[in-house]
Write a protein that binds this DNA or RNA. Structure first.
Lengths: 230, 230
DNA sequence: TCTCCTTGTTACAAAATTGTCGCATCAAGG
DNA sequence: CCTTGATGCGACAATTTTGTAACAAGGAGA
């Protein structure tokens, strides 16, 4: 899963031992894991880290998983984040209540870690197509994360690694404007110190690569703000 | 948070040390911070600076936080501003009294700065849709903060950065009259020294941009007061 | 070790944006 | 109708932002 930027999972579980196990496995699976020990932290971290998916324990002191889920599904800006609920109760009743709050999937304890990982991958696929090998397309540009290939029309484009990651980022949300800082975060990684002008240079390189067989420049410079695709 | 104009937070806290710490963190978070050391100043600054959110210490000499809150929530024009209360007392009673005065959220001292920041962000989201990518619309004008695009009817308008921030501000509260000073604060940022006439010029430029494909002038000049959308 | 490729930085040019002036117009009160 | 302060607007120079070529350093593979 080195192609594109790392997907983030928010793991909410009050029992430290269980949390550790899951975190370990999720990391091995390629996720960046943000851990929360209770519901309140969870709600805060959602805003902080904008995770791609959330794994949420049902039973927690104070703010229960079900309540956290309900609240997240009420807010428009968090509604789209897939939530996988972990529950100790197998009763159908609970199952249904859980789904009514909007959880996207359901795993009953004791669960198989492999199964949970599989379900996590399924949910991730919904929100971050490129992270699992779905071909991204925009206009006449096609990017295949699996083979690491980029096509424009019939031509195969030759991109450097950084150009590839840049383009992946743009193609995940066509039209969205990314600031230089956001791109540095996402493409270069956090806590890397590079000059923000470096982004410009790589944008230039990406542009040249995208136009190497003729064709319009698909990248848009937004003065004072950053860059966008389309 | 670079796209649109800077959100303003009014920070009311009588203890200078605490105020400084919070101000520093809020600024790091992207807020413009207006500081008040007591309740009376707070009430003045609300009218002066029209903050997006208010962080209000409970315990203050003379005019207490709770009283400030009550008064603000009584006035229709300030009722909508979210208030986060800071309290040293953890008792549920106080909590409830606080909420009854209309406070929108609550943090108990000693609080985690991160938590407070997160809560501030949550409140901000409620009042400044553009800060989270909700498309703003008014009449036939559409402004998309995420793609940084502005449409009028079918046409895509070309705006400069300042024009974009100006229009964002207007579209957040259609109809509201903004004084030149308020616009300077909000669009240019504080401690920037520019002539207040500069606003006129940019308004003019924004007008031209908005009418570049024909169409009425949606901006209204309010003589002696400022400008408004619609 | 020697290439070839990629990367980050810098310097400079080109382009867009900005703030201010000066003067024409306008609106409202007398 | 006239006065007066406020506003609109074209022009312009200064500043800021962006594009890009050049270059040196690092790394992978032969």
């Amino acid at each position: 899963m080195a192609h594109t930027s790392q997907p983030v999972v928010l793991l909410v579980e009050d029992e430290p031992a269980q949390r550790e196990v899951l975190a370990y496995n999720l990391e091995a699976e390629g996720f960046r894991v943000v851990q929360a020990a209770n519901g309140e932290d969870a709600l805060l971290f959602v805003d902080e880290d904008t995770p791609d998916i959330i794994i949420l324990d049902w039973m927690m002191p104070q703010l229960s998983g079900i309540e956290v889920c309900r609240r997240l599904k009420m807010r428009p800006e968090t509604r789209a984040i897939p939530i996988i609920m972990l529950s100790a109760r197998a009763e159908e009743v609970d199952r249904i209540r859980g789904l009514e709050t909007g959880a996207d999937d359901y795993v009953i304890k004791p669960y198989s870690v492999l199964e949970l990982m599989a379900r996590a991958r399924v949910q991730l696929r919904r929100v971050r197509p490129s992270s699992i090998g779905v071909v991204l397309e925009w206009d006449d540009i096609r990017l295949d994360p699996e083979t690491h290939r980029v096509y424009r029309g019939d031509h195969v484009l030759k991109l450097g690694p950084t150009e590839f990651r840049l383009l992946s980022t743009f193609m995940e949300k066509p039209g969205r404007v990314w600031s230089r800082e956001q791109l540095l975060d996402r493409v270069w990684g956090r806590d890397i110190y590079v000059d923000s002008r470096t982004v410009d240079v790589h944008i230039g390189r990406l542009r040249k690569s995208l136009m190497q067989n003729g064709g319009e420049d698909p990248l848009r410079t937004v003065r004072g703000a950053g860059y966008a695709l389309g």
